[in-house]
Design a binder for these strands. Structure first.
Length: 198
DNA sequence: AGCACGATGCTCT
DNA sequence: GAGCATCGTGCTT
């Protein structure tokens, strides 16, 4: 089966409805250059955070120092710190001025696996705080455009994942978020391991 | 294999 | 000063 060469996803890819972006990022390649080493993972889990009204989104508090990247142009990174030790990676979506983003919750390593394993002390990369640790993503990657190949961090075309391989359900870790936001089916998750051959 | 809980520090009230 | 878009450990089943 022929597959196209990977190319970075353009800003126009991210400047679209957040749910569409969240779904289409499943199977995309997340590329990180860390200390000159190329680390790549296929995105296997995402969640959409959409607008001022979404009470699960940080943007519910308005535009603050922390949430500022969410209001910025699509295709940039929104990286924030939580629970005293974890960094979360988001890709900003929608038009500038409208707060929305897709949280990258899990990757399946395909390149630089040994380095990622070492950084994770042999544990997996399935979890939003785990993948950022594996890839060395912190505050310094906040605001970074994810649309430029050969920078420090970008997202490029990967494998096509059919609907039958994707589970859609409510977002997790929301705790006290009220309905209807608590149950919005805005989480996308690959059911089984992805075929990484290209 | 599943659940409960403590760690830990930054952001916003 | 409270509350996290979480993780890992340790204990129970």
């Amino acid at each position: 089966m022929a597959r196209s060469q990977p190319s970075p996803l353009p800003a126009a890819f991210f400047n679209r409805p957040t749910l569409t972006v969240a779904r289409q990022l499943i199977g995309a390649r997340l590329v990180r250059i860390l200390d000159g080493v190329r680390l790549v993972g296929l995105i296997t889990e995402t969640e959409a955070y959409f607008g001022f009204d979404d009470l699960a989104s940080h943007a519910k508090a308005g535009r603050t120092i922390r949430t500022d990247p969410m209001f910025g142009p699509a295709g940039h990174a929104y990286v924030y710190f939580t629970y005293g030790s974890h960094w979360m990676l988001n890709a900003v979506t929608e038009a500038e001025g409208f707060p929305a983003a897709v949280l990258v919750r899990a990757i399946q390593p395909v390149e630089g696996i040994a380095v990622m394993m070492e950084r994770r002390l042999g544990r997996d990369t399935l979890g939003p705080g785990k993948l950022t640790q594996a890839l060395g993503i912190t505050k310094s990657e906040n605001y970074l455009p994810l649309t430029e190949a050969n920078s420090r961090l970008w997202i490029e075309t990967g494998v096509l994942v059919p609907d039958k391989s994707v589970t859609i359900g409510p977002r997790v870790g929301l705790n006290k978020t009220p309905e209807p936001w608590f149950s919005k089916p805005w989480r996308f998750l690959v059911k089984d391991q992805l075929n990484t051959e290209r």
